[in-house]
Design a protein around this nucleic acid. Structure first.
Lengths: 107, 107
DNA sequence: ATTTAATATCGTAATATTGCAATATAACAT
DNA sequence: ATGTTATATTGCAATATTACGATATTAAAT
Protein backbone atom coordinates (compact mmCIF):
# COMPACT_ATOMS: atom_id res chain seq x y z
CA UNK A 1 0.00 0.00 0.00
CA UNK A 2 0.86 3.66 0.02
CA UNK A 3 1.76 4.22 -3.61
CA UNK A 4 -0.60 5.83 -6.08
CA UNK A 5 -2.19 3.18 -8.30
CA UNK A 6 -1.62 4.92 -11.61
CA UNK A 7 -2.43 1.86 -13.73
CA UNK A 8 -6.11 1.85 -12.76
CA UNK A 9 -6.69 5.35 -14.09
CA UNK A 10 -7.06 6.82 -17.57
CA UNK A 11 -4.27 8.55 -19.49
CA UNK A 12 -6.02 11.88 -19.05
CA UNK A 13 -6.51 11.51 -15.32
CA UNK A 14 -2.87 10.56 -14.86
CA UNK A 15 -1.69 13.41 -17.05
CA UNK A 16 -3.75 16.09 -15.30
CA UNK A 17 -2.60 14.77 -11.93
CA UNK A 18 1.02 14.77 -13.03
CA UNK A 19 0.82 18.35 -14.29
CA UNK A 20 -1.08 19.48 -11.20
CA UNK A 21 1.70 18.05 -9.03
CA UNK A 22 4.10 20.60 -10.48
CA UNK A 23 1.89 23.40 -9.19
CA UNK A 24 1.09 21.58 -5.97
CA UNK A 25 3.90 23.20 -4.00
CA UNK A 26 3.99 26.93 -3.24
CA UNK A 27 7.74 27.10 -3.82
CA UNK A 28 7.30 25.87 -7.38
CA UNK A 29 4.48 28.33 -8.01
CA UNK A 30 6.68 31.09 -6.59
CA UNK A 31 9.63 30.02 -8.74
CA UNK A 32 7.51 30.17 -11.89
CA UNK A 33 6.16 33.57 -10.88
CA UNK A 34 9.58 34.94 -10.08
CA UNK A 35 11.21 33.71 -13.27
CA UNK A 36 8.45 35.28 -15.30
CA UNK A 37 8.61 38.58 -13.37
CA UNK A 38 12.22 39.18 -14.40
CA UNK A 39 12.23 40.47 -17.95
CA UNK A 40 15.71 39.12 -18.28
CA UNK A 41 15.55 35.77 -16.62
CA UNK A 42 18.05 35.78 -13.78
CA UNK A 43 18.52 32.56 -11.84
CA UNK A 44 19.70 31.76 -8.33
CA UNK A 45 18.49 34.90 -6.88
CA UNK A 46 15.75 32.34 -6.42
CA UNK A 47 17.57 31.13 -3.34
CA UNK A 48 17.63 34.66 -1.88
CA UNK A 49 14.19 35.56 -3.15
CA UNK A 50 12.31 32.51 -2.02
CA UNK A 51 14.11 31.69 1.18
CA UNK A 52 14.81 28.02 0.75
CA UNK A 53 18.24 26.45 0.59
CA UNK A 54 20.07 26.07 -2.69
CA UNK A 55 19.62 22.28 -2.81
CA UNK A 56 15.92 22.64 -2.15
CA UNK A 57 15.47 25.23 -4.89
CA UNK A 58 17.49 23.07 -7.24
CA UNK A 59 15.25 20.12 -6.46
CA UNK A 60 12.11 22.13 -7.18
CA UNK A 61 13.64 23.40 -10.43
CA UNK A 62 14.22 19.78 -11.37
CA UNK A 63 10.54 18.97 -10.90
CA UNK A 64 9.53 21.97 -13.01
CA UNK A 65 12.11 21.02 -15.59
CA UNK A 66 10.94 17.42 -15.78
CA UNK A 67 7.53 18.77 -16.75
CA UNK A 68 9.41 20.47 -19.63
CA UNK A 69 8.42 23.91 -18.39
CA UNK A 70 11.95 25.34 -18.34
CA UNK A 71 14.48 26.40 -20.90
CA UNK A 72 17.93 26.81 -19.35
CA UNK A 73 20.67 28.57 -21.24
CA UNK A 74 24.19 28.73 -19.83
CA UNK A 75 25.45 32.24 -19.31
CA UNK A 76 28.96 32.05 -17.98
CA UNK A 77 29.00 29.97 -14.84
CA UNK A 78 25.38 30.66 -14.08
CA UNK A 79 22.31 29.35 -15.80
CA UNK A 80 19.63 31.57 -17.18
CA UNK A 81 16.39 29.80 -16.51
CA UNK A 82 13.28 30.81 -18.26
CA UNK A 83 9.83 29.43 -18.78
CA UNK A 84 9.09 27.50 -21.94
CA UNK A 85 6.08 29.55 -22.93
CA UNK A 86 4.81 27.06 -25.50
CA UNK A 87 4.76 24.27 -22.98
CA UNK A 88 3.34 26.55 -20.31
CA UNK A 89 0.54 27.49 -22.67
CA UNK A 90 -0.03 23.83 -23.48
CA UNK A 91 -0.36 23.11 -19.78
CA UNK A 92 -2.92 25.89 -19.38
CA UNK A 93 -4.91 24.47 -22.28
CA UNK A 94 -4.86 20.97 -20.84
CA UNK A 95 -6.21 22.27 -17.56
CA UNK A 96 -8.88 24.29 -19.33
CA UNK A 97 -9.86 21.31 -21.42
CA UNK A 98 -10.26 19.27 -18.23
CA UNK A 99 -12.29 21.99 -16.54
CA UNK A 100 -14.51 22.60 -19.55
CA UNK A 101 -15.25 18.94 -20.19
CA UNK A 102 -15.89 18.28 -16.54
CA UNK A 103 -18.20 21.18 -15.77
CA UNK A 104 -20.87 20.25 -18.31
CA UNK A 105 -23.49 18.37 -16.28
CA UNK A 106 -24.71 18.10 -12.72
CA UNK A 107 -27.55 18.48 -10.23
CA UNK B 1 12.69 19.54 7.83
CA UNK B 2 10.20 17.63 5.77
CA UNK B 3 7.18 19.86 5.99
CA UNK B 4 6.28 22.46 3.40
CA UNK B 5 7.25 25.95 4.64
CA UNK B 6 4.01 27.68 3.79
CA UNK B 7 4.76 30.81 5.81
CA UNK B 8 7.60 31.93 3.53
CA UNK B 9 5.37 32.06 0.47
CA UNK B 10 2.73 34.51 -0.73
CA UNK B 11 -1.02 34.02 -0.28
CA UNK B 12 -1.40 33.43 -4.00
CA UNK B 13 1.37 30.85 -4.23
CA UNK B 14 -0.08 28.96 -1.28
CA UNK B 15 -3.58 29.13 -2.70
CA UNK B 16 -2.63 27.88 -6.16
CA UNK B 17 -0.60 25.07 -4.60
CA UNK B 18 -3.48 24.10 -2.33
CA UNK B 19 -5.94 23.98 -5.21
CA UNK B 20 -3.48 22.12 -7.43
CA UNK B 21 -3.12 19.47 -4.73
CA UNK B 22 -6.75 18.54 -5.20
CA UNK B 23 -6.05 17.68 -8.84
CA UNK B 24 -2.67 16.17 -8.07
CA UNK B 25 -4.01 12.62 -7.72
CA UNK B 26 -5.49 10.71 -10.66
CA UNK B 27 -8.21 9.21 -8.48
CA UNK B 28 -9.49 12.67 -7.60
CA UNK B 29 -9.41 13.76 -11.22
CA UNK B 30 -11.28 10.58 -12.13
CA UNK B 31 -13.83 11.14 -9.37
CA UNK B 32 -14.55 14.66 -10.61
CA UNK B 33 -14.85 13.40 -14.18
CA UNK B 34 -17.14 10.54 -13.22
CA UNK B 35 -19.44 12.67 -11.09
CA UNK B 36 -19.80 15.14 -13.92
CA UNK B 37 -20.40 12.41 -16.52
CA UNK B 38 -23.52 11.19 -14.73
CA UNK B 39 -26.35 13.57 -15.53
CA UNK B 40 -27.97 12.53 -12.31
CA UNK B 41 -25.16 12.45 -9.85
CA UNK B 42 -24.94 8.93 -8.47
CA UNK B 43 -22.38 8.20 -5.78
CA UNK B 44 -20.58 5.11 -4.61
CA UNK B 45 -20.57 3.52 -7.91
CA UNK B 46 -17.32 5.39 -7.59
CA UNK B 47 -15.92 2.46 -5.68
CA UNK B 48 -16.85 0.07 -8.51
CA UNK B 49 -15.98 2.52 -11.27
CA UNK B 50 -12.61 3.64 -10.06
CA UNK B 51 -11.32 0.45 -8.48
CA UNK B 52 -10.14 1.69 -5.13
CA UNK B 53 -11.52 0.58 -1.79
CA UNK B 54 -14.45 2.36 -0.20
CA UNK B 55 -12.35 3.98 2.54
CA UNK B 56 -9.87 5.24 -0.04
CA UNK B 57 -12.58 6.76 -2.22
CA UNK B 58 -14.15 8.31 0.86
CA UNK B 59 -10.83 9.85 1.79
CA UNK B 60 -10.37 11.32 -1.69
CA UNK B 61 -13.92 12.68 -1.59
CA UNK B 62 -13.02 14.36 1.68
CA UNK B 63 -10.09 16.14 0.05
CA UNK B 64 -12.29 17.30 -2.83
CA UNK B 65 -14.94 18.33 -0.36
CA UNK B 66 -12.50 20.31 1.79
CA UNK B 67 -11.71 22.35 -1.31
CA UNK B 68 -15.46 23.10 -1.37
CA UNK B 69 -15.87 21.46 -4.75
CA UNK B 70 -18.70 19.13 -3.73
CA UNK B 71 -22.33 19.50 -2.90
CA UNK B 72 -23.66 16.37 -1.18
CA UNK B 73 -27.37 15.88 -0.77
CA UNK B 74 -28.73 12.91 1.15
CA UNK B 75 -30.97 10.69 -0.89
CA UNK B 76 -32.19 7.91 1.31
CA UNK B 77 -29.24 6.13 2.85
CA UNK B 78 -26.94 7.11 0.03
CA UNK B 79 -25.45 10.48 -0.71
CA UNK B 80 -25.82 12.20 -4.02
CA UNK B 81 -22.53 13.90 -4.64
CA UNK B 82 -22.25 16.54 -7.24
CA UNK B 83 -19.79 19.18 -8.23
CA UNK B 84 -20.28 22.70 -6.98
CA UNK B 85 -20.11 24.33 -10.39
CA UNK B 86 -19.63 27.84 -9.06
CA UNK B 87 -16.64 26.83 -7.02
CA UNK B 88 -15.33 24.66 -9.84
CA UNK B 89 -15.55 27.65 -12.17
CA UNK B 90 -13.83 29.81 -9.58
CA UNK B 91 -11.01 27.32 -9.41
CA UNK B 92 -10.62 27.35 -13.18
CA UNK B 93 -10.47 31.14 -13.12
CA UNK B 94 -7.84 31.16 -10.39
CA UNK B 95 -5.67 28.81 -12.42
CA UNK B 96 -6.17 30.89 -15.56
CA UNK B 97 -5.32 34.05 -13.68
CA UNK B 98 -2.10 32.44 -12.49
CA UNK B 99 -1.22 31.22 -15.98
CA UNK B 100 -2.02 34.52 -17.64
CA UNK B 101 -0.11 36.64 -15.16
CA UNK B 102 2.86 34.31 -15.24
CA UNK B 103 3.25 33.91 -18.97
CA UNK B 104 3.78 37.59 -19.72
CA UNK B 105 7.56 37.98 -19.91
CA UNK B 106 10.62 35.88 -20.65
CA UNK B 107 13.64 35.27 -22.83
C1' DA C 1 -35.74 -4.22 17.44
C1' DT C 2 -32.86 -6.27 13.83
C1' DT C 3 -30.97 -6.43 9.57
C1' DT C 4 -29.04 -4.36 5.58
C1' DA C 5 -26.73 -1.00 2.79
C1' DA C 6 -24.08 3.35 2.23
C1' DT C 7 -20.75 6.14 3.93
C1' DA C 8 -17.27 7.85 7.37
C1' DT C 9 -13.58 7.34 10.58
C1' DC C 10 -9.60 5.09 12.87
C1' DG C 11 -5.37 2.85 12.86
C1' DT C 12 -1.58 1.57 10.51
C1' DA C 13 1.75 0.13 6.85
C1' DA C 14 3.92 1.49 2.53
C1' DT C 15 5.47 5.04 -0.18
C1' DA C 16 6.35 9.88 -1.58
C1' DT C 17 7.69 14.55 -0.74
C1' DT C 18 10.14 18.23 1.44
C1' DG C 19 14.21 20.27 3.20
C1' DC C 20 18.97 20.70 4.16
C1' DA C 21 24.04 19.65 5.18
C1' DA C 22 27.70 17.74 2.84
C1' DT C 23 29.76 16.91 -1.25
C1' DA C 24 30.41 16.85 -6.28
C1' DT C 25 30.69 19.11 -10.65
C1' DA C 26 31.42 22.74 -13.94
C1' DA C 27 33.10 27.07 -15.60
C1' DC C 28 35.25 31.09 -15.22
C1' DA C 29 39.09 34.08 -12.95
C1' DT C 30 43.58 34.51 -11.15
C1' DA D 1 47.18 24.74 -11.19
C1' DT D 2 44.20 27.00 -7.66
C1' DG D 3 40.50 29.50 -6.09
C1' DT D 4 35.89 31.05 -6.57
C1' DT D 5 31.14 30.96 -7.76
C1' DA D 6 26.92 28.67 -9.49
C1' DT D 7 24.48 24.70 -9.73
C1' DA D 8 23.57 19.61 -9.14
C1' DT D 9 23.60 15.37 -6.60
C1' DT D 10 23.68 12.42 -2.51
C1' DG D 11 22.14 10.94 1.84
C1' DC D 12 19.14 11.30 5.31
C1' DA D 13 15.60 12.96 8.70
C1' DA D 14 10.94 14.87 9.16
C1' DT D 15 6.56 15.00 7.44
C1' DA D 16 2.74 14.04 4.21
C1' DT D 17 0.08 11.11 1.28
C1' DT D 18 -1.97 6.89 -0.25
C1' DA D 19 -4.30 2.70 0.57
C1' DC D 20 -6.93 -0.53 3.08
C1' DG D 21 -8.84 -3.58 6.93
C1' DA D 22 -11.57 -3.03 10.82
C1' DT D 23 -14.91 -0.60 12.90
C1' DA D 24 -18.25 3.17 13.57
C1' DT D 25 -22.35 5.59 12.07
C1' DT D 26 -26.57 6.49 9.82
C1' DA D 27 -30.89 5.57 7.68
C1' DA D 28 -33.99 2.94 5.34
C1' DA D 29 -36.29 -1.87 5.15
C1' DT D 30 -38.11 -5.83 7.39
Amino acid sequence: MGATKEHIHTETANEIAELAKVLAHPARVAILQYISKQDSCICNDLVDEIGLSQPTISQHLKVINEARLLKGTFHGKSICYCIDIDRFQELQEKFNSFFNKTKINCC
